[in-house]
Structures are given as C-alpha cells and as structure tokens.
Design a protein around this nucleic acid. Structure first.
Lengths: 205, 205
DNA sequence: GGTAAAATGGACCCGCAAGTCCAGAAGAGG
DNA sequence: CCTCTTCTGGACTTGCGGGTCCATTTTACC
C-alpha cells in the first residue's frame, strides 16, 4: 500500500510515527475527533507539529485516516480467534462474550465509532475504509454461518449473507446505543436475541 | 418546559425561530454538525447571527440541542400510528415497512444520528436527550410486545423489555450502517431477522 | 399615535487551530 | 571524518468561526 515515492523511514522515524498514531487514537477516544487538535496530539506524544506534517503531509485528514485504518484492523483482531473459528455453538457464545466484554471495557471510548460517524461521511477515502470494514466483518460472520450449515447445526435454508448482516447490525446498534447511554444492555440483548433465533431454528436431530 | 423568564415571542419571532431550527437541521443533515457553521445557517435561512443569538442566547450548543430535540420527536412521530398500535402481526410488519422506508428515503442524511454521535457524548444535556429518546422508543416497543403477549401471540416467557431493547438495537445498527455505506440492506436484514424470531417462537395454537 | 419591547442587519472582535518555514540536531553510509 | 538525508523544535502566518455590540426597524398594545 505504501508508495515508493515516500521518504524512507529510519527506525527512530518509524517509532515517532507510531507514537503519533497511538497518541492521536487515545486522544480521539477521550474527546472525539472534532474536539482533538493537533496541538493536543503534540502535547500528548511529545512531538511538534512539524513532525506531524513530516509524517502526514496532508495534515489532519491523513492522520485521522491512518488512525481509522489502524482501529479498524484492531476491531477485527480483538475478536480473534473466535471470529475466525465459528464452527460450533460454543465458539459463537465465546465470540458474543468477547464482543460484549470488549465494548463494555471501552465504554463510550470507541475510536472507530467516533471516526466512522464524525469523519465517515465527509471523505471518500474514509467511506471506502468503512465499507471495507463492514465487508470484512460480515464476511467472517458469513463464513461462520456457512460452517454451521455444513455441520448441520444451522438450517440450510438460511441466507448466510443476510444472517451475517443482521448479526453485524445487532452489534453495531448495541455499540451505538452504548456510546450514547453508557449502558451495555442493548448490545447484550441484541446479540442474545440474534443467537437465540439461530438456536431455536436449530434443525431437529 | 419554556421558562417564564424568557422574552415573549411574537408571531414573527416564533416563525423566525422555527426557520432557524429547520434550516439548521437541514444543514446538519447535509454536512454534519461539526461542519455546519452559524454563517451557513444564516445564509440558508436569510437571517443574521444576531437573530441566532437572540433566540438561542447560549449560542450554537443551545441551537443544536433544540434541533436534536425536534428531530427526536420527529423520529417517533414518523413511526406513528403503527408504533403506538403494535397489537397484531400486520401492525408489526407495517411498522417495519415504515421504518425501512423512512430511512431509505433519508439515506445518509439523518440529523438525529449525526447529532447523537457528534454531540451526544459531549454535553450532559444532549446525553439526557438521547437517553430519553431511547427510553421512549423502547417503551413503545415494550408495550407492543406486551400487547402481543396478552393476546397470546408472543410467548409469555419472553422478556418484553429485553426484546424491545434488541429491536431498538437492530434498527439503530441498521441505520448506522446505512449512514456509513448508503445501503439499506442491513437495516432490512436486522429487522426481518428479529421479527422472524418472534414469529418462530410463536406458541402453538 | 405613542411608547416600550422585540426583531433585525451587519460591522466588529478575538481566539484558536491548521498549516508553513527554516534552522539546527541526529543518523546513515561511505 | 565528511556529507547527505531524515528528524525535530518552535516561532510565525492565516483564515475561519463563534460570539458581541449597537443602531435601526418593526410589532404589540394602550
């Protein structure tokens, strides 16, 4: 992905760049993307604005995009290994628990949620990023649904893609409400209800 | 709700105030709350900043809050009469259709979604407003679930509040993904899946 | 019609935050 | 060591946007 025309980074440079992205992510989690200034990020990361523009020539937008990309990866990583191995009931339950715990712990401080909603609509690059995250996440769930169908644990008539979409929406809705109200109950209810559907539709043995 | 200490509004004044709120809502729908400036609103509504501060002495925050309150009411109104009369299967289906159509039409331009996510976390007043909307919406759904239980159409063991929470999360998640991607498929999948659960759990006649 | 309150226009102020610049320090590589 | 590149600090510029002020017009009401 990295263009060959960019200046090569030395070890120190790469470390600084990483520090900036980390610090920016933390700041955004705490205060929101719009409320986070470059000076805040400089203060937190012990850098100066010249570094920010050195590593992110297009300024704030480029930095925010880098943060968003990193957080998107992290969202999926944090659900592993369960998300990649949804082959039996226990795995689904564990996945559900991991998701709930992750967001319960993060509470209202969800950098990705902030970025999607504050920056998602504004730039095409951010929209693409969001769309890719949705697609990757949904694909993992879809694969899980298919595994269960192959194992005879989910009804074969089930539309795997649609089911994955519904699960993803359940998570997303629960998280959105969590971010607004600070309560994790909706996320739990949404996930449990969705999983209950799959259980009750369980084909007879 | 209106304090007695505020200056009394004349007919013209009330009209101007309304115009400002409408214009602000429209602008926010199109560009987001953070990107909307008071000058934008002035230009669109043919007013000057002095009027904004005349009608909203606390400035932008107060105006945004007024917009959010109005949009919150509107969200619920737009779901009527179906949301208030969820007493049979057809009503649920009609409600589902209304919700999908409403957001399909609005597309990514959801002022409330924007406000909840961009302003919800920042101020206590906004958080309260959001919490109230969630509670009112969920209460309506909960009442519907109870009606169905009383009529023997939903299982009596169902937790009405939890079910309502799951439905609300489904809508919210679908809308969030709609706002990010422009596609209504997740909203449909989430709602249909949730309703299917209730149908399949249908107690035997 | 007179007067007090409300409504309006628009110039103005001010601070903040994004972005620029350049000089100098720290590394890499021979 | 010499030199070229990368990295860093921090002062500076600039524009934008929220908020203020006051003079003027319009409306309400007796």
């Amino acid at each position: 992905m990295r263009s060959a025309r960019e200046p090569r980074l030395t070890a120190k440079g790469a470390a600084t760049r990483r520090r900036i992205v980390e610090g920016a992510a933390a700041e955004i989690r705490e205060r929101g993307a719009a409320a986070t200034t470059l000076d805040d990020i400089c203060a937190r990361t012990s850098t100066s604005k010249s570094q920010i523009f050195h590593y992110f020539p297009d300024g704030k937008e480029e930095l925010l995009l880098a943060v968003a990309a990193r957080e998107a990866d992290r969202v999926l990583e944090d659900q592993q290994p369960h998300l990649g191995d949804l082959t039996k009931w226990e795995a689904w339950q564990e996945w559900r628990d991991v998701v709930v715990r992750r967001y319960e712990k993060q509470g209202v401080h969800c950098a990705l949620g902030v970025l999607i909603t504050e920056l998602g609509r504004s730039t095409p690059a951010a929209q693409t990023l969001t769309a890719q995250l949705v697609e990757r996440w949904q694909a993992a769930l879809r694969t899980g649904v298919r595994h269960m169908q192959d194992a005879g644990l989910f009804k074969p008539e089930l539309d795997a893609d649609r089911t994955a979409a519904a699960l993803l929406a359940a998570v997303q809705g629960g998280v959105t409400i969590l971010m607004s109200t600070g309560r994790v109950t909706h996320l739990e209810a949404a996930l449990d209800t969705s999983l209950a559907l799959l259980r009750n539709d369980n084909p007879p043995p």
